[in-house]
Write a protein that binds this DNA or RNA. Sequence first.
RNA 1: GGCGGCGUGGCCGAGCGGUUAGGCAGGGGCCUGCAAAGCCCCGUACUCCGGUUCGAAUCCGGACGCCGCCUCCA
Length: 463
Amino acid sequence: MLRLYDTVHGEIRDLPMRDPGRLSMYVCGPTVYGLPHLGHGRFTLVWDVARRWFTFRGLEVRFVSNITDIDDKIINLALREGTSEEAVARTYEDEWWSAMAAIGVARPDDSPHATQYVAAMVELIESFLADDVAYLTSDGLYFDTSRVADYGLLAGQPLESLRAGARVEANNEKRSPLDFALWKFAKPNEPSWPASFGEGRPGWHTECVVMSLDLLGDGFDLHCGGFDLKFPHHENERAQAVAAHRPFAQHWGHNGFVMVDNEKMSKSLGNFTSLTDLLARTDARAYRLLVIRSHYRSPIEVSRVTIADAERALARLDTLARRFDLPVLGGEKLVKGGDYHFAGEAAQLYERVCAFLDEDLNTPLAVAELFDAVSAANALADAKHEGRAAELALCVTVLFAALGLSVDGGVEEHDAEVRALVVARDQARSESRWAEADRLRDELVARGWIVEDSPEGTRIRRA
RNA sequence: GGCGGCGUGGCCGAGCGGUUAGGCAGGGGCCUGCAAAGCCCCGUACUCCGGUUCGAAUCCGGACGCCGCCUCCA
């Protein structure tokens, strides 16, 4: 049974399924006005891992994640750079998808754009006006949060207490500081859409509720995002669904932040590293390993030290792949558990890892178990139990692949000149000309190779 | 001010009542022509102060420190 922590109930619960065997999942996506940073990388990795694991376990997952392509930040950037909002959104959406591809996050089944859903949003807002749940101010339409009885459910506190904690608002026409913009009237030269209540653009909270319900339907299963979206974003999405009398997400999942020097990484703090920068100097798989080594709800510390640490751990896995000549699995194609059957130690490993992951995606325990299995496989092979060792090693790669981590021994290209050095070294070694062998090794090292001896002779790989 | 969370060995990071988490780094050994890789062994850690218990990192109370949300935010 697959279980997952649910924010509303504050406990781990069975994963709900409106249709047994099929899981509908919505993850709040990015606003495309800048390069994706490590925080975006974490939330996409976390939910990509979840999606992959649920798929591995036999569920048919429908995974939807939006692109917010109209927003104040986009407008401001377009103004600053003297370009159009469309151009800004397109540029950074392209950056987004290439970063996602680079870190191995599989494409959503649907990635709706806010600008494609404006008409539906207008319709929803009209119904709010009709029901007196929305009201007009000079700069737009607002949602009256007092009309939702259980407002504050996701925040975990009652409306009154939220209201008391709210800071000073710029807009004093709001009835409550908690009320939020459904629609912002267009200012000169801003992109806008027609609406019966006045030309303008939608507020952020309205798009996700409209798109998720449209694509996944009433009462869809799972709605996910970062902890910071819990309130007010998810609260407000939910409030609108309630006001529209539509059953909303049955289960809410939230992931922890990426921390830098014990502070949340965010654009507003300016302490972020873009994924693009990270990928320029790091194997993307190391970041995934770093992410799955801790629990998805915990904060993770990301620094050159922790990334380097993960890179070395990853090298240990790749070494295993090289030793056992393991297939490279994973990638864009999601792995299904039903395709594999294991015996002996591998079967036991499989059971244990599944038990950990089925219970609130406990990736750190699963990873620890898998690293134990790496040692075990090597030890078995050292003891000449080749068959058992190979089976266990294969199971390790299958389970890592299930989490989207491709263990890869990496066959690397080398030219004839390098090849000649390797051959010459093997020759020297076979004749016990050690000084010559060491000289040839030094030469290979100088060309950027790591040299290892094996029963089959000199093996090299990129340093 | 309200709500939530956290403080674990050199670092990262699990565990949440009794048994080695795991990784990285470090030390010793085996293997190796020497290495590398691999294997084996090693640190005996849980902010502090009380309490509950036969037994607490794990439960309760308090103190201190830190973080997050309440405003755009993954």
